[in-house]
Nucleic acid binder design. Sequence first.
DNA 1: CAAGTTACCTGACGGC
DNA 2: TGCCGTCAGGTAACTT
Length: 284
Amino acid sequence: MPELPEVEVICQGLLPHLINRTILSVYCSGKQLRTPVPCKEMQKELCKKKIISLSRRAKYLILKTDCGGGLVFHLGMTGNMGIFKTGSVTKKHDHVCWELDNKTELRFNDTRRFGAVYFFPAKNITKAIKQFFLNTGPEPFSRACSVQYLSGQASRRNIAIKQFIMDNHMVAGIGNIYANESLFRSGIHPERAASSLSDKEWKRLLTVIRKTLTHAIKCGGSTISDFLGASGDGGYFQINFRIYGKAGEKCSECGGLIMKKAIGGRASFFCPVCQKIVGNHSRR
DNA sequence: CAAGTTACCTGACGGC
DNA sequence: TGCCGTCAGGTAACTT
């Protein structure tokens, strides 16, 4: 579910509720997420520890405590995190709870359990987290994520441009919604070979990706079915969708029919008039 | 090495 | 009413 904007919104929403709070206890449902939940380690290492930072990298959240130990979260497709009053009614699929020292608790809810919670011990945590993200591509807003970098990485890749920008090893944080929206807004067909984009097209695409993600963050993310920010309010970027989920509707630019097709196994939406396949030749 | 396939889960929805 | 197939915002381990 959550792509970069949704994770960023959750991060910003949780931040004031978590900073300088001490963890009193940790509860786990016992259900396995993508990986086993490190319940014992959290209970042993994080109780009575104070949370000193929360940040985002790609679609992950990173929490650090004053003992040096930390956690990394991934929300998978249906994951969400929020702050609730201690002892208040829990929801189905609340899998991990961290009780805090002000009668609140942080809860990790994930229906499909594609999410994950990773524990990082204090020893060498900086190195361990660096290692964890070793194969993660640059943040789309970073200087490292340049036209030169992207076109270089794509130079020998014949996969569809949509699959390429959704590959978090290439660039971090872009999922199915924002890949679809960014390509439509750039006028680039999602099935164009990644290697076939000119530097001019890469520049346009990168600019549009940054603009789209920024706009979505400002809107509080996209709420499709179950995404709610830390405040409990849904985001509203979905009212700005121009292509995602609009198969059979008219293109907002040309009035043509919006098409749907699976690309790399993921639902892809495009306007065949505004997003032409041209120059689809590999430069291998 | 690139690219395609499968697996991990639950729930909502449409067709019959 | 219910059963069944399909689909859903992600990722990584496999195979080809």
